[in-house]
Design a protein around this nucleic acid. Structure first.
Length: 631
RNA sequence: GCUGGCGUAGCUCAGUCGGUAGAGCAACGGUUUCGUAAACCGUAGGUCGUCGGUUCAAGUCCGACCGCCAGCUCCA
């Protein structure tokens, strides 16, 4: 008789024999796909040998979705094997929003083959096979996959280290080498769609045979799938590269790949973002500086960039000496810190900088504003005493909150802790990590922990903004750094008269302003809020007779700091309105003979349409109030 | 960087079997002077990404390069 083990389910303690299945512990909630036990995701039917906290995972949980998509990949493989028995399976993982499977096929596949495969997948869903886990010896696994001609699977089996459990999952006639976990049965995959095919080399190595990679996505029901596909269509329409050209914000040219040409309108938005950031930071005791953008290579050697970041440096070879264009501001700020003897009274010292940064990105990585080679950050470095970490982190998170709230973006926080190859004092790490958690709790923020994912020089917080389409973007990042002050031998004189080492906090809130602007274009579908819009108001005279009146209104608005244009082209009012709407101008002032007589403007907004006539003075007061930069 | 695809007017795109380039929108000129999402007529605009090759003849076929797109990898 084995000793009983203790489980905690839904807050209740349950005692059972080892080997019990999660499904036997309690009523399995509807929609449960897998179970989470002691940090591991397992099949619902997996025998549990040790006790612990039990949590059921549904499609709502990212781990649950992962299981769902992973089983969908198996489903895809089974369908392909039925249609092409000579196919050989590679690997088939789950992705964030779907899955793929790499499969070797005797003939290349095209998108036209996808519906046929989907059809077979649906049939297998109908057949509703239970998905069963089997554990195999190495020899047995080699025999099974050898007999089936699965040479890639044999290769994987041979790579599995000695002593590791080798498992496979079986559904109907199909079996796949896999560590799992998986759904209870194929019938759970309610709706699926194969989205694309592409080539991929086995194990990503071009010397290996070319596999066919089939991408797809799947959901518990058709409505969720449709919603997902609509979102993808919507995202395509909002693509910032497309809107950026349509709205005359920016362009790229092949003469300077990875660098942005900002048009007047785009640069206006860019500057509004920068102004907004400056106001927020000035109000929180940051001081803006400007430091050099090209340094002799020795600086980069000292900072560690030469060892860790050399491939991303733009290098200049002059006078037999290498110099590097800065990819980050931190070393410059360290040098600035050293320009005088610092007192404990000077700390925290918060240095902000918006200078251009350059990083060499490989050509395939470039992507509109989201990934460029030349950019700017709302960057700052805080030099703090160890006892100030908590308060400064609190302040940084406050800034994060104000900023994302302004753009109506919820955000998620991930704390990354000490990696195995950490540098510095263990005690400082422990204290810093504990304080970060305390700060997060004090701010009432929900956060995830990525254990051991911090940088070698300090723990970090990554903040993911969620846009209007529900996509997550990593923008803000806050990193504690114990190493750079060491490398630059930074010191301050403490109260006791002794020289001490400060801690550095690297932080950016928008991250790259270029990228953040790209995200905002997609978030707002190009329809910027009034304070950000490059043209805030357009005056539309109905006939040539109102040109002078329109100009006088524009002048008054301009003098009040409003960005205004007059559309004095010889066109009908409907035409001018249509153009202004297409260009997403937030407010239009239609002025005709009646307005001129009564000294009014007929207000039309981008969202609400015609609001009727208003006295000019009233409108002026209202727009000035509403167009103010927040913060 | 790798794999696949693409590159024709400012933009979106057509161009058949290899025979010297076309539309809509935008621009420009004129007519129209109009009250809430596209008035009408006309004009101009191209080294077909670049370089080389095949051919009597190349936007079209071949090669190299550049850039862009999707994916991989990487990341702000």
């Amino acid at each position: 008789m084995a000793l009983a083990v203790q489980f905690e389910v839904n807050g209740e303690q349950v005692e059972r024999e080892p080997g019990v299945r999660a499904a036997d512990l309690t009523a399995v909630p509807e929609g449960a796909l897998a179970v989470w036990v002691n940090g591991q995701t397992l099949d619902l039917s997996r025998p549990l040998m040790e006790g612990g906290q039990i949590q059921f995972l549904s499609f709502q949980d990212s781990a649950g979705r992962h299981v769902f998509r992973h089983s969908s990949a198996h489903l895809l493989a089974q369908a392909v094997k039925r249609l092409w028995p000579e196919a050989k399976l590679g690997t088939g993982p789950a992705l964030e929003d779907g899955f793929y499977y790499d499969i070797w096929l005797p003939e290349p596949l095209t998108e036209k083959d996808l519906p046929r495969i989907e059809e077979m997948m649906r049939q297998i869903v109908q057949e509703n096979y239970p998905i069963e886990r089997v554990e195999l010896s190495r020899d047995h696994a080699l025999k099974i996959f050898g007999e089936r001609g699965e040479s890639f699977k044999e290769e994987i089996v041979q790579r599995i280290p000695e002593g590791a459990v080798i498992s496979a999952y079986r559904q109907g006639e199909f079996i796949d080498l896999c560590s799992g976990p998986h759904l209870p049965s194929t019938g759970r995959i309610g709706a699926l769609k194969l989205t694309q095919v592409s080539g991929a080399y086995w194990r990503g190595d071009e010397k290996n045979p070319m596999m066919t990679r089939i991408y797809g996505t799947s959901f518990p029901d058709q409505a969720s799938l449709d919603q997902h596909l609509e979102r993808i269509e919507e995202a395509k329409l909002r693509d910032h590269r497309k809107l950026g050209a349509q709205l005359d914000l920016f362009t790229f040219r092949e003469e300077a790949p990875g660098f942005v040409f900002w048009h007047p309108k785009g640069h206006q938005v860019y500057r509004s973002l920068e102004d907004f950031s400056r106001r927020l930071q000035a109000a929180r005791g940051y001081q803006e500086v400007a430091t050099p953008w090209i340094y002799r290579v020795g600086l980069w050697e000292r900072s560690g960039h030469w060892d860790h970041y050399r491939d991303n440096l733009f290098l200049i070879d002059r006078d037999d000496e290498l110099q590097g264009v800065k990819p980050m501001n931190c070393p410059g700020h360290c040098l600035l810190f050293k320009s005088a003897t610092r007192s404990y009274r000077d700390l925290p010292w918060r240095l902000a900088e918006y200078s251009p940064l350059s990083r060499y990105e490989r050509s395939g990585a470039l992507h509109g504003l989201m990934r460029v080679r030349g950019f700017h950050q709302d960057d700052a470095h805080l030099f703090v005493r160890p006892d100030q970490i908590r308060e400064e982190m609190f302040g940084v998170l406050d800034l994060v909150d104000v900023l994302y709230r302004t753009f109506d973006m919820p955000y998620e926080v991930v704390l990354s802790t000490r990696p195995d190859d950490y540098m510095g004092e263990l005690a400082l790490w422990d204290r810093a990590e504990a304080e970060l958690e305390e700060v997060l709790k004090a701010r009432g923020l929900k956060y995830q922990i990525n254990p051991k994912d911090g940088a070698f020089y300090g723990p970090k917080l990554d903040i993911y903004a969620v846009d209007s389409l529900g996509r997550r973007w990593q923008c803000a990042t806050v990193q504690l750094d114990f190493q750079l002050p060491e490398k630059f031998e930074l010191e301050y004189i403490d109260q006791d008269g002794l020289a001490k080492r400060p801690v550095m906090i690297h932080r950016a809130i928008m991250g790259s302003i270029e990228r953040f602007l790209g995200i905002l274009v997609e978030h707002y579908a190009g329809a910027f809020p009034l304070w950000l819009a490059p043209v805030q108001v357009r005056v539309l005279p109905i006939t040539d007779n109102q040109h002078d009146y329109a100009e006088s209104i524009a002048r008054q608005l301009r003098e009040a700091g409003i960005r205004v244009e007059v559309d004095d082209r010889n066109q009908k009012i409907g035409y001018k309105i249509r153009e202004a709407q297409v260009e997403k101008v937030p407010e239009m002032l239609v002025v005709g003979g009646r307005d001129q007589e009564n000294n009014t403007v007929s207000v039309r907004t981008r969202e609400a349409g015609d609001l009727g006539a208003q006295p000019v003075a009233d409108y002026l007061a209202s727009i000035v109030e509403r167009a103010r930069i927040p913060g």
